[in-house]
């Protein structure tokens, strides 16, 4: 320890030669380039999974607050199912089991399977928060909406959800940061994201500390960026007069 070798990032991934200016040409890439592309995979998996999670999670969360017993049951079952199985096991299920259940899925690239796995896993947590957000509104809001003749879907669309979504932004922020961290589990099905890069580059170069430091820093930067964006959104959509309103 103690003797750093940051040049490792400028090495060619094929022959280990240090490349001038740290970037390879003509198909050869350096570890730096590999890492940046891995960062891209981490971000893409996370953002796509976040979209899946927010859409499915909101839907399930809303179902759990409807008056219908069946819909509540569906929402509850969904949440419990995806919350009580480890993410890694869920990824294996999507990768090894579900394609043999539904043959068309065999043609789907593993990248998308991981997005679905991570998205559905996170949707259970988001469903929980959306439900809590809707329930935190006073019952009078729902009744008021129904009393002026709105249908139930309209009440959700125009009365309940605009408030509920603003309330759940802070917990959604921490879930989005979690999704970036959780995307690291995709290494297990050989998605070439940051953790996969870290493991392989460590093995090839034996400069584990430098590589792990760089990868950890990239995770940190990504999560921090999400945090800032979320804070920006939170401030933009703030309802005047509510708790947390006004800085």
């Amino acid at each position: 320890m103690g003797n750093w070798d940051w040049q490792v990032f400028c090495k060619n991934t094929i022959d280990g030669e240090v490349m001038p200016r740290c970037f390879g040409s003509g198909g050869d890439i350096t570890y730096l380039q590999w890492m940046l592309s891995a960062w891209g995979w981490t971000i893409s998996v996370s953002l796509l999974a976040l979209v899946v999670a927010v859409v499915v999670g909101s839907l399930m969360g809303i179902l759990r607050t409807t008056p219908s017993k069946t819909l509540i049951l569906i929402g509850n079952a969904w949440t419990e199912l995806f919350r009580n199985i480890p993410l890694l096991v869920q990824i294996f299920l999507w990768y090894h089991v579900i394609p043999s259940l539904f043959l068309p899925l065999q043609k789907v690239p593993s990248f998308l399977l991981v997005v679905l796995a991570l998205g559905f896993f996170t949707s259970a947590r988001i469903a929980e928060q959306v439900k809590a957000g809707i329930e935190s509104l006073s019952k009078g809001q729902r009744y008021a909406g129904l009393a002026i003749g709105l249908t139930l879907p309209q009440t959700y669309r125009f009365v309940l959800l605009p408030m509920a979504f603003r309330i759940v932004i802070p917990p959604l922020t921490s879930e989005s940061m979690n999704i970036i961290k959780n995307s690291s589990v995709a290494f297990a099905v050989s998605i070439s994201e940051l953790t996969m890069f870290a493991m392989q580059a460590q093995e090839e170069t034996s400069r584990g500390i430098e590589i792990y430091l760089a990868v950890s820093l990239l995770y940190f930067v990504s999560a921090f960026a999400v945090n800032r964006v979320a804070l920006f959104i939170e401030n933009r959509v703030q309802v005047p007069g509510m708790i947390g309103g006004g800085k």
Binding site: I180, K181, N182, S183, S184, V185, F187, T195, A198, M199, Q202, Y212, V215, S216, Y219, F220, A223, F224
Partner: peptide
């Protein structure tokens, strides 16, 4: 702020 998998590897 670091994924658990990375901590395990570290």
């Amino acid at each position: 702020s670091i994924p658990l998998v990375m901590v395990i590897l570290w």
